[in-house]
Each structure stands twice: as structure tokens, then as C-alpha cells.
Computed example of a mutant assay.
Amino acid sequence: MEKFSQFRDRGSGIAPFLPVPSQSSGIYLPFHLFLFCMRLPLLVTAFLTYFCVLQWLPIGSLGKKASLWVILGIPGIWWIDLQIDGVRKGSLAMHHSTRLPGPGSVIASSFTSPIDALYLAAIFDPIFTVSYPFTCKVQQISLVQAILRAFSPPEVKPPADARLVDIATLIKQNPKSPIVVFPECTTTNGKGILQMSPSLVTTSATTKIFPVSLRYSPADITSPVPDSYRTFLWNLLSKPTHCIRVRIAESVQLPVANNGGSGSRPGPTDRQPSYDYNYFDTLDAKLTESLVDLDASLTAGEKTLLSQVGESLARLGRVRRVGLGARDKQEFVKLWSTSRRK
């Protein structure tokens, strides 16, 4: 993997885009084949039944969550190791309203696998969004789009027909649901936290942002490489069980006064038009420069918020933050695809 050394973080040597190797089945290959062949039709049937039929029926939030747990249970995802900052085991009911994401809050989640979106939907029934590294606005997507996006190539700018909105407006439009943001903008193998998208700074000062880390054991059900459907399904369905390690940090909020103490933060609607970078008037070669310009437009409090979320995700996942982002993964995918064809 020396040819991919340029995609290692210079400080830590972490390579967040390389796929996690699977352990050889060895003498258990017949058993793994049996599990795969038995589970695949069940998973496909359950997936299509929910997304083509059940989600459109008036079965309520509880019915939808139960259906999603059936999908999670088919591949053997039955053990959830949940820890919440500041909450002792057995006392969650006493802190439920303050320590867990709820309506009107934001979930800033790590992004390593299509299971991320499925699990978050089964627990919180949220609104899913797509973040981009060069704009503060997000694009609302459905659950199935969030799942499939884990297999998609990284995007550094939104499609021409994308409807972008800031998070504060999205919360007003959906007051009964939490909002899920994947601030890294693309998937990793879970070994590092990428650069944060600025989308989180469009929250209001009263909105709670909960960093949430999801890690898997075995770790080979991550999907850092696009279009890895076959490998993912084999790793997911051929193993007897999988464990999800969920860590939820204490909420963070955007400071009311974040301009070095000299004034209050303007609301999202008070932003100047230049705050959201216009991609379509700019060449791709200038994308890196646009990131610098966007970062310079953020206040000290907004930069602190993004740093707090990144540090919390790294601490929860017991990994480090890396100086790589979606733009770097684009270059990695090009090199990876070329090497695979050869």
C-alpha cells in the first residue's frame, strides 16, 4: 500500500480511506457460506418490504423503528454497547431529556458504514442531511439515500439541482425530529476523524449538538471505498454476530457571543451572500482556496464549535483527528480505481 502513502495523515500516519481487511474464514468457510445464503434473501425481502411498503403506511414511529430493528437483526447486529457521557449505567431514565438527542437537536455522527444511518433511524427517527466541505448549508435526504450514500464517491460540491438549506431552518421545518449531520462529508474506515464541514455553524445558539460515535466489531463492515456492495454484504451476512459500540458525548452549543466577546453571533438568515460559496462560478482548481476563504469568514466561536465536535468524535472513537478531508478522498478514489483496473 505504499502507493497510497500520500493519503496518510502526516502527523499520525493514519490512513482513513483504506478498507479494513477481513479475517480469513479458514475451516469455517462452509458455515459462513451457509449464513450468507440464508440471510441474503431475508435481508433483501425485509429491506424492500420496509422501503417500498411499510414506510408509506400509517404504522407510526414505533412501527417503523420495530421494522428497522428487524432489518438490523437479520445480519446478527444484536449487541449494542451504549455509553453516554456523564451518565452512570442504570441511571439513563433520570437524564433522558438532557443527555440524549431529541426533537430540535442535532446529531453530529461519525460516518463509516451504511449501518450508521439505519441504526440512528431505528433509535431516533431523525431527518438525514448531506454536508459539503465548502458550504455552510446542507441537503435533506431520505433514509435510503443516507444508506446508499455510504457507498457513493465523495462529493465536495452539491449537485446543480440540490436544494440547500441551513440547519436552523431545517429544525424549524421539522420541530418534532432531530437532525442528523455527517460533518466529515464522506465515509472512513473509522481510524481517524476527517476535517469538519462548516454546516454545523448554522445552528442557533439554543440548539444542542450531540457528537455521536459509532464503531463496529468486527470493523470490516465499514465502507470507506465506494461501490463496495459485494464485500460489505459478505462481511455483514457471513459473520455470526456484530457489535455496535455507541458513544454519545455531552451536547455542545454555538456561543451567543463568539466574536472575541465583542458582540453576538448573527443568525443564519443574517449571513451575507458570500458566506455560502458559489461553486458554479468557480473552477475546481480553486476549491482549496475557497475553503480557506470560508474558514476565514467563520467567527472564533464557530471555529471553536467545529473543533469541539471534532475533538469529541475523536475522543469517543478513541482515534485521532487527521488533516485529510473529502477532497483528499476524491484523489484517493481515483488512484484506487486506477490500481484496481490494472
Rank of each mutant, 00 (worst) to 15 (best):
K137Q: 14
N189P: 11
V225P: 04
F151N: 08
Q139I: 12
I171Y: 02
T186W: 04
P178C: 01
V138Q: 08
K191R: 14
P273V: 10
L233A: 13
P153V: 05
P158S: 02
S251M: 07
L233R: 03
I244M: 13
D220N: 11
A168V: 12
Q173Y: 01
F134P: 07
G192F: 00
L200D: 12
L194F: 02
T203D: 10
Q139H: 13
S177M: 13
G267Q: 09
G267K: 08
D161Y: 03
R245K: 11
S262M: 14
P183G: 08
L148N: 07
D270P: 08
R271S: 09
P159I: 09
T231K: 06
V256R: 08
V256H: 08
I147H: 02
T207E: 04
L237R: 01
R230H: 11
T241N: 06
L254M: 14
Q139T: 15
P255Y: 00
N258F: 06
Q139V: 15
P224Y: 00
I167E: 12
T186G: 07
Q272R: 13
G267N: 11
P255D: 04
E155Q: 11
V201N: 00
S262R: 07
L143W: 05
S274W: 10
C243Q: 05
S264Y: 07
T169E: 11
S251L: 07
T241F: 11
T231N: 08
K208T: 04
T135D: 09
P183C: 10
F134I: 15
T269V: 15
L200T: 15
S264D: 08
P158V: 05
P183Y: 03
G260S: 08
V165Q: 04
S223R: 02
N174G: 10
P240D: 02
T202L: 03
G261K: 08
F210G: 00
S204R: 01
S142A: 11
G190E: 05
S238I: 11
T169I: 03
G260H: 03
P154V: 03
V201C: 01
Q140I: 14
F182K: 02
T206L: 13
D220P: 09
T207Q: 05
T207C: 12
A160D: 10
W234D: 12
F134H: 13
Q145M: 09
I244H: 00
P153K: 07
I141N: 04
I193M: 01
S238R: 09
I244C: 08
V144K: 01
T188H: 05
V165A: 04
A257T: 09
P211A: 01
A257L: 10
P266Y: 04
D161P: 03
N259I: 10
M196R: 11
P255Q: 04
P266W: 02
S223P: 12
K157V: 15
S262G: 10
F182I: 13
V246S: 09
A168I: 13
Y132H: 14
P255W: 00
T202C: 03
T187F: 03
A168T: 08
R265Q: 13
R230Q: 12
A249C: 12
I248W: 02
L194D: 07
